[in-house]
Simulated assay, not measured.
Amino acid sequence: MTHPVPPVPQPQPKKSRGCLWATLIGLGLVVLFGFVGCVAVIASVGSDSSSSGQSASSGDKKDDKGDSAESSDEEKTAGIGDTVEDGAFAFTVTDIETGVSRIGNDFLHHDAQGQFVIVHVTVENIGDQAEMFHGSSVKLYDADGKEYSNDGEAEIYLEDSEAFLTDINPGNKVDAKVVFDLPEGVEPVSVKLHGSLFSSGVTVSLS
């Protein structure tokens, strides 16, 4: 009787060291690429946030500058002694008289209903042709914003008024006296001078 011969175990194949290194290198590259990708994404997000912040900051600065410029323009109101321009004329208000009750002399005069206010203004023609200046192109305002027109009749009795239909050639100027009849106790605060009937005019403070 014969006994079965037990199977002889086969030797396990040895793993190649080259394959092992290739696997390790592959894993290392995967980890490296993943890390580089994360860094790139983080950097991109940070850059976008920074750009947005800078844009917003820049916009705020521009707005601030714009607001400051507008506020500055609003605060800069011309006053007595300042020269302003409108149309073909340059105006300089040089003086103001208030509380005048009569204009003229004992024989030829004009009495105020309230009080005469006389605005002294130098008018220069800065255009290229003759232009006519008239006191009606100047409006006076009180603290309540009420508008007053000139008194042309009183200007006729005022010596050297130069405010009644005065032609001014280019480069020439006149010293006009524009008369207003205001209620007693009313204080004039500003005048608006027009280079023509249709111009926007310029405001000069009298205070």
Rank of each mutant, 00 (worst) to 15 (best):
N105E: 03
G104Q: 02
H109A: 13
G18F: 14
I42Y: 06
G28E: 05
V119H: 02
V121Q: 09
L20K: 09
V45D: 07
L29Q: 12
S50I: 09
E70N: 04
L29R: 07
S16N: 13
I80Q: 13
V121A: 11
V100D: 08
F35G: 08
V138W: 04
E124D: 05
K65W: 02
F35V: 13
A22P: 04
G46E: 11
S72R: 08
S50E: 13
F107G: 05
A88P: 15
S71D: 09
V138S: 06
L27W: 13
D128Q: 05
D48R: 13
K15A: 15
T122P: 00
E70I: 11
G87A: 04
T77N: 12
F133G: 01
V31L: 15
G26Q: 10
T83W: 01
S137A: 12
S49H: 05
V31D: 09
S137K: 14
H134L: 07
S68T: 10
V31P: 00
V119R: 03
A90E: 04
C19A: 15
D64V: 06
V39H: 04
S44V: 08
H110A: 08
S51G: 08
K62P: 00
I42W: 04
V121F: 08
G34F: 09
D128L: 02
Q129E: 15
S58K: 04
G37R: 08
E131K: 07
G87Q: 03
H109K: 14
A22H: 05
G99W: 08
V93Q: 06
T77Y: 02
T92E: 11
A56E: 13
D82F: 05
A78Y: 02
G79W: 02
I126A: 00
L20E: 14
V123F: 05
S137M: 14
A88N: 11
F89S: 01
G114F: 03
D67G: 01
K139W: 10
E85C: 01
F133R: 00
E75T: 12
V45W: 01
I118T: 11
V84F: 05
D111W: 01
D86T: 01
C38R: 15
S50G: 03
D63Y: 10
W21R: 14
L108H: 04
I96K: 10
S49P: 00
K139L: 15
F107P: 00
V117H: 04
E131I: 00
T83V: 07
D106P: 00
I96P: 01
A22G: 09
F91C: 01
V39M: 13
Q54A: 15
H120Y: 06
D63V: 10
S52N: 14
S136H: 11
A88V: 10
C38L: 15
D82C: 09
S57F: 06
S58Q: 08
A69N: 10
N105K: 01
V93R: 05
I103M: 05
G127Q: 03
V100M: 10
K62M: 11
D67C: 03
I25N: 08
V123T: 03
Q129G: 12
D82A: 13
D128F: 00
V121W: 06
